[in-house]
Write a protein that binds this DNA or RNA. Structure first.
Lengths: 116, 116
DNA sequence: AGAATATTCAACCATCTGGTTGACGATTAA
DNA sequence: TTAATCGTCAACCAGATGGTTGAATATTCT
C-alpha cells in the first residue's frame, strides 16, 4: 500500500496527534478495532453526553482517523488507517524503529509506575 | 502484533501525543535528530520568545521525548526514544488488524517488572 | 399521522494552552 | 568585582478545548 505524503504534512500531523491526545478518543479507536459502530453504541460505555461523543467522533473523522457513513438515521463509524499511517511514517523518521522495543517499554513503565 | 492498553499508560500517551501535537515541538525534535543542543540554540530559528521555547522543551521532557542535562549555565537537550517507542507501538497496534493479545502482554509486563 | 429513535446544532461555561513581558538566580568572562 | 550570558519564573492574556443542556432535524416504527 502506498502512502502519499505531501511536502507539508504539518496541518495533518497537528490534527492527527491532537486527536490522539485525548484518552476518550483513543478508547473509541480501540473499540472500533473490533467492529464498525453507530454513534449511539460508541457512546454507550462512556459517562459523558452523547453530544460530547459526537464531537469526539467529528474530531476523529476530520483527522481522518475514522470514516463516517450515514445509512438511514444511523451514522456508522469505522477506522481509517490512512491518518495513522501518516503519523506513523513521520515517527519512523524520528526513530528508525524496526521492531517493538519491549526493553525500552519496560524501562519506561517502570519509571512511570514509580511515581504512585 | 501486540497492542498495549493499560490504565497506567493513559497518562503517558496523553502527554506524548499532546506534546507531538504542536508543530514547534515536532520541529524541535527533528532538529535534535541532528545533534544535541542548548536551549538558546534550539530557540534560534524560531520567532517566538526564549521563554516560550523553554516551555516547549519542558513539555517535551515531561513527556520523555527528550532528556535535559544541565552543565554549567548551559542546559543540553537530546532526544529520548523511550516515549516515542511507546507511542509508536500503540499506533502500530491500531494500524494493523491482527490478533490482539492484551492479557498476554499485561501478564508479561507484570512478571517482568516484578524481577527487581 | 404520530411517536420514538439517532444524531447534530447552538449557546454557554470552566479550564487548558501557547504566547507575551519583565524580573530573577546562576554561571562564566573581563 | 562587575558585566554579560543562559535559562526559568510569575503574572497575565487571547483563543482553543471538552464538557454541559435544550432545541432541532431526519428517519423509522406503529
Amino acid at each position: 500500500m502506498w502512502i502519499i505524503i505531501s511536502p507539508d504534512m504539518t496541518d495533518a500531523l497537528d490534527q492527527i496527534f491532537s486527536a490522539l491526545a485525548d484518552p476518550t478518543r483513543r478508547q473509541i479507536l480501540v473499540m472500533l478495532l473490533e467492529d464498525d459502530m453507530a454513534v449511539t453504541d460508541v457512546a454507550e460505555p462512556f459517562e459523558i453526553s452523547l453530544a460530547a461523543v459526537s464531537k469526539h467522533l467529528g474530531i476523529l473523522a476530520s483527522a481522518k482517523l475514522i470514516q463516517q457513513e450515514r445509512r438511514g438515521r444511523v451514522k456508522w463509524c469505522k477506522l481509517d488507517t490512512q491518518a495513522m499511517n501518516i503519523a506513523w511514517t513521520w515517527m519512523q523518521g524520528l526513530g528508525q524503529f524496526e521492531h517493538i522495543d519491549l526493553d525500552g517499554l519496560e524501562a519506561f513503565l517502570e519509571e512511570t509506575l514509580k511515581k504512585d
